[in-house]
Nucleic acid binder design. Structure first.
Lengths: 350, 350
DNA sequence: TTGAAAGCGCTAACAC
DNA sequence: GTGTTAGCGCTTTCAA
């Protein structure tokens, strides 16, 4: 049934080594032999077994990618870059979907991959030790570790950037809606954004109101709803991610709070969705973070010394933030506000 | 460096076969031996090599997934279902990103996977033959083939559904903006949607205006822009996918054409984005199509006979379609129109 | 209940 | 240039 190298060799009247040489492009094969072997390979539709190759060479030419919830918008954008860089490097990509954090320890990586790219997470020290003894290189995207190559952003500075924008607009009662910090996933990025934001608010003589919950739109919405129901509600909300920011916008809409007239909202990441809804946000280069991470990993597999890099952040002003107290003024702002409300209304009813 | 089964065996004072038995949960091992072996495994952090296992057993416990452009919104939603079902089935998932169609023939699948799930595409007959001789099962999602298990929708009926909605609203000049049908990708789905749409229009005594191009927002936008610049422009546009529908909305906005007042737009798929922008569309169950496809594939790998299934379609009315000629009437419609315009404007400027 | 040994399909010395 | 052969790390008879 399955065609093997031996079959090819005998049909071509040569030894298996010769076939192997042809397969691997060794120059030490005469042109005639090469042609004959090639012909038999095509005729039989022969394809070398990756498993046998891996066992023999000790390399798989494959890298693994793990990320919690790879279907999250920001993860998808990162994967786009990863995929591109990986295939440019001549590797295969195997995607491990981590449904539960504790399942990491059971990832069957042995003999499957030469390197592992962890996106928005980091294996435990014991898992790292296992990976090391297995000879598997590791690199991190959107996470940092003292001994591993990584590409990340300065989340603390990002949090500060977001809040400084709000402060400049005159806001003083500012809230943060971010991730649960006790969850096993421990998205450190949200925590650091919060820290940067809190510091900036404190320097302005205020105090950041903090609300945390699971990372999704629904929880962000209910957290925001409660904030808006406060006696003295915030005039601006910084959401730990764009996804959560959309939840905040939904809450504002449900409570008939005008954005940006009565409430400014700023997100983080600048996923495609942020553009669609006109969300002001802190942009980080998602796709290139993935590509860059993949490159660092391939370097590491090649034995290069550890390298890390930090990507730049920038503020993207759209239509969900405005000066404090400024009554719903210009026509543009009116239009934007109306528009936003319409969008959310439709979303809720859908 | 790398821990092998032999190492474990000698440290535990047993033969490799015994370690193998422990690894595979064979009952024919005494409790004491089992415990001793387990202890050594943990101590050494041993993990069996998937490559060696695969070579020995001939199975990899891994399925591959190919799809053109896996970062497209609809593909991502399908992958979500695939990933879930695959891991429920105890398999690993390896994602092949097909940047160029002609690269399919070079996918190194031999000895890597037991089954291949093709999403929105189908391998050529010769590739299928190769896969067959390699003993790799194949299943299709969003595609059909007389000999392969598949899960798909009735695209022709879907196209009809979309257009009938427009006809009911009184539209007679209807255009279709879809995919290039000559591209090597040959997204048959777009072609079939067009056929269904054309038939419905013909039955109503009209003729569908057809415009085709590469599958992305930008091309859809420029095709729509040209349609709207016609002397006698269509009053409704059916886009082959939600992504393309968004491009159409952008074009309408740029041309100051009111949606749905002067132009109705309907999409296809119902990706998350459609909800966000309030797009009327034909919904297909994306995530469950992936899950179902994965299940069919696993059945096939288990030797079960071919099964196919068709998923249901339904019309989702949102705010981009309205009755022909009805002047921008109710407050709701005004708001929706204004809102949509705002959204597009922000998107363009971002 | 256990161990020895024969493959699985390939690569890489090493001889010729 | 080309063939022979010894592994790579595991599973799986077959004996004990």
């Amino acid at each position: 049934m399955k065609v093997t190298i031996a079959e090819v060799a005998s049909r071509a009247g040569v030894g298996v080594a010769t076939v192997s040489r042809v397969l691997n492009g060794s120059p030490a094969v005469s042109e005639t032999t090469r042609r004959r072997v090639r012909a038999v390979i095509d005729e039989l539709g022969y394809e070398p077994s990756a498993a046998a190759r891996a066992l023999s060479t000790g390399r798989t030419r494959t890298v693994g990618v793990v990320t919690p919830f790879f279907t999250q918008p920001s993860a998808v954008e990162r994967l786009r870059g990863v995929s591109r860089a990986i295939s440019e490097g001549g590797y295969q990509l195997i995607l491990f979907d981590l449904a539960q954090p504790d399942r990491f320890a059971r990832l069957p990586v042995g003999g499957r991959i030469d390197g592992l790219l962890c996106v928005s997470m980091c294996p435990s020290e014991s898992d790292l030790a296992r990976l090391r003894t297995a000879g598997i290189a590791v690199a991190l995207v959107d996470f940092e570790h003292p001994e591993l190559p990584s590409v990340a952003i300065d989340d603390t500075a990002g949090g500060r950037l977001a809040v400084e924008h709000l402060l400049e607009l005159g806001h003083r009662r500012i809230a943060f809606v971010g991730d649960d910090e006790e969850s096993p996933w421990a998205f450190q990025s949200s925590a650091r954004r919060r820290v940067g934001a809190a510091a900036a608010v404190a320097e302005a003589g205020g105090r950041l109101i903090v609300r945390r919950g699971p990372h999704d739109r629904e929880h962000a919405r209910s957290l925001a709803a409660r904030l808006l129901a406060l006696d003295d509600p915030p005039t601006a909300i910084f959401a730990g991610s764009d996804l959560q920011a959309v939840g905040v916008l939904e809450a504002a809409d449900a409570a008939s709070v005008d954005v940006p007239g009565d409430l400014s909202v700023i997100g983080f990441d600048d996923v495609d969705l942020a553009r669609y809804v006109g969300l002001t946000t802190v942009a980080q280069p998602l796709e290139s973070s993935g590509a860059q991470g993949a490159r660092l990993l391939m370097e590491a597999m090649g034995g290069a010394p550890r390298r890390t890099c930090r990507l730049d952040l920038r503020l993207v002003r759209r239509s969900t933030t405005a000066s404090r107290g400024k009554s719903p003024g210009t026509r543009n702002q009116m239009a934007a506000a109306g528009s936003r409300r319409g969008f959310i209304a439709r979303m809720a009813s859908a």
